[in-house]
C-alpha cells in the first residue's frame, strides 16, 4: 500500500483530485415511494447507499412506546458484496456495525424533533450497496435526505464527510485507498454552522494538526449540504409546479 503515491508533489491525489476536492456527489430522493415514507439514493464517489425511512408509525411493541417523544431506530445493512472482495460473513452483528448504528441514532436523536411525534416509532434502514471509504459520512447524508423526504421535522441538515491527514496536508473526502494509508477524521456537521454533531478519529493524528483537518472538513460538509439542498429544491419546485398546473 505504501508504494502508492497518495499525494503527488504536483498536488494531485490517487484519483486525480486536489486536496480540497470532494468526490462526485449525486443524490435523489423519493426513490422507493411504495416501500417507505421517505427514501433516498446517494452516490458519494463509489459509495452507494439506499436509505428508507418508515414512520412515524405505530410501534410494533409496547416496549417501544415513549409517551413524550418518538423512538428512532436505525439499522445499517452492509451488503456482503459491497467491497471488491465478497465478505464471507454477514456484518449484521459486528461490533463495528453496532457502533455505527449507535452513533447514527445519537446523532439524529438530537436533530430530529422527536417531541413532535409522541408514541411513535421512526424506523430507518440503510443499505450499503457499495463502499469506498468515508462510509459513515455517506450514511449521515443519506439519512438526512430520507428524513427530509419523509416530511419529518428536524432542526437542520446534518452532513458528513471524512478528511484524511497526509503528512501535513489534509485531504478532503477520502476514498478507501487513502483511508487505509493514513489516519482519517469523520465529521457530522449541523447545517451551515460550525457545530459538530459527530466527530470520530480512529488513528493517530498530531493534536496540533487536528484544527486544520476540522476546518477543511467543516467546509466540505457545508458544500455537501448545499448539494443536497439543491437536489431537494429541484424536487420541491417540480412538485409545486406540478400541483399549480393542475
Amino acid at each position: 500500500m505504501s508504494r502508492l503515491e497518495i499525494y503527488s508533489p504536483e498536488g494531485l491525489r490517487l484519483d486525480g483530485r486536489r486536496w480540497n476536492e470532494l468526490r462526485r456527489f449525486e443524490c435523489s430522493i423519493n426513490t422507493h415511494s411504495h416501500a417507505a415514507d421517505g427514501s433516498s439514493y446517494l452516490e458519494q464517489g463509489n459509495n452507494k447507499v439506499i436509505t428508507l425511512v418508515k414512520g412515524p408509525q405505530e410501534p410494533s411493541s409496547r416496549s417501544q412506546v415513549d409517551t413524550a417523544k418518538a423512538l428512532l431506530r436505525i439499522s445499517v445493512n452492509i451488503t456482503k458484496f459491497s467491497k471488491t472482495e465478497r465478505s464471507k460473513t454477514s456484518h449484521k452483528n459486528e461490533r463495528r456495525v453496532l457502533e455505527m448504528q449507535t452513533a447514527l441514532v445519537r446523532t439524529f436523536n438530537k436533530n430530529v424533533m422527536l417531541n413532535v411525534y409522541p408514541r411513535t416509532l421512526i424506523n430507518i434502514e440503510v443499505h450499503v450497496l457499495q463502499q469506498d471509504g468515508g462510509i459513515m459520512g455517506s450514511l449521515i447524508n443519506g439519512i438526512t435526505l430520507a428524513l427530509i423526504d419523509a416530511g419529518i421535522a428536524m432542526y437542520d441538515y446534518i452532513s458528513g464527510v471524512s478528511v484524511g491527514l497526509y503528512d501535513t496536508t489534509p485531504l478532503l473526502d477520502t476514498n478507501s485507498l487513502e483511508e487505509n494509508a493514513m489516519s482519517t477524521v469523520t465529521l457530522g456537521v449541523v447545517g451551515k454552522t460550525e457545530k459538530l454533531s459527530l466527530l470520530l478519529v480512529e488513528d493517530k493524528i498530531p493534536l496540533d494538526r487536528l484544527e486544520n483537518v476540522l476546518a477543511i472538513g467543516i467546509a466540505g460538509t457545508h458544500r455537501i449540504r448545499d448539494l443536497m439542498d439543491k437536489e431537494l429544491r429541484k424536487r420541491a419546485e417540480k412538485r409545486v409546479a406540478n400541483a399549480l398546473s393542475r
Partner: peptide, 28 residues
C-alpha cells in the same frame, strides 16, 4: 453532475488555517 466539487475554506473561526488555504485559492 461531473463537475469538480471544490471546497474553499470559510471565513473566521479557524484563523490559523487561512494561510494554508491561500496557496491553493487560485486552483479552484
Amino acid at each position: 453532475m461531473s463537475e469538480v466539487i471544490t471546497v474553499s475554506t470559510r471565513r473566521g473561526g479557524f484563523q490559523q488555517f487561512d494561510s494554508i488555504a491561500d496557496e491553493f485559492e487560485e486552483d479552484e
